[in-house]
């Protein structure tokens, strides 16, 4: 590979310095260069939302950015949320409401919802559906995801 650029990026609070080709998609960088495979890739044309991560705290499609663009920035992926024995309240609600089937799109939903719930701690069902509209799910028909977001909002309100 020629034409490499050195970038330093903070992912989930950890600093990484890597040499990357400019054309390397951020999604591939996260998955294959950093090994953070919780972020999935579903279309690479910016529609399905599966690859959603936070970029400087805001949800973005990581297939529609180049890794070089993350130089000096902060990326947050699903791995930053809870772990298996200590789920984040949103993850807990997803489990409780059966919002996961194949689990492939799930990380993208979670990463879209984290900033959404921060901004809208008490969303209506309609607001939730709007917030989910940028992520495709082929398994659930979305109903249990909507339920999970409501549940998460309730639980998070109690906790805070």
């Amino acid at each position: 590979m020629s034409n490499l650029k050195t970038i330093t990026v903070t992912v989930n609070g950890k600093h990484y310095t890597r040499d990357v080709e400019p054309r390397l998609l951020l999604s591939d960088f996260i998955r294959h260069h950093l090994g953070l495979t919780g972020t999935h890739v579903g279309c690479e044309h910016g529609v399905c939302g599966t690859c959603t991560v936070l970029f400087d705290g805001e949800s973005v499609r990581s297939c529609l950015m180049f890794a070089v663009q993350s130089d000096g920035h902060e990326v947050t992926t699903v791995e930053s949320l809870g772990d298996i024995d200590n789920l984040h309240p949103l993850q807990e609600a997803f489990m409780e409401a059966h919002a996961v089937q194949c689990g492939f799109c799930t990380s993208g939903f979670l990463m879209s919802l984290i900033p959404f719930l921060e901004e809208n701690p008490d969303p209506t069902e309609e607001e939730i559906r709007d917030a989910l509209a940028g992520n495709l799910c082929r398994c659930t028909g979305y109903q249990h995801i909507v339920d999970a977001v409501k549940l998460a909002a309730e639980n998070m309100a109690v906790q805070s």
């Binding site: 910016g46 805001e58 499609r61 940028g134």
Partner: peptide, 12 residues
Amino acid sequence: MPSIAHPQIRNR
């Protein structure tokens, strides 16, 4: 603004 794609797109 809300009619333009989705939040993930509007953030960029």
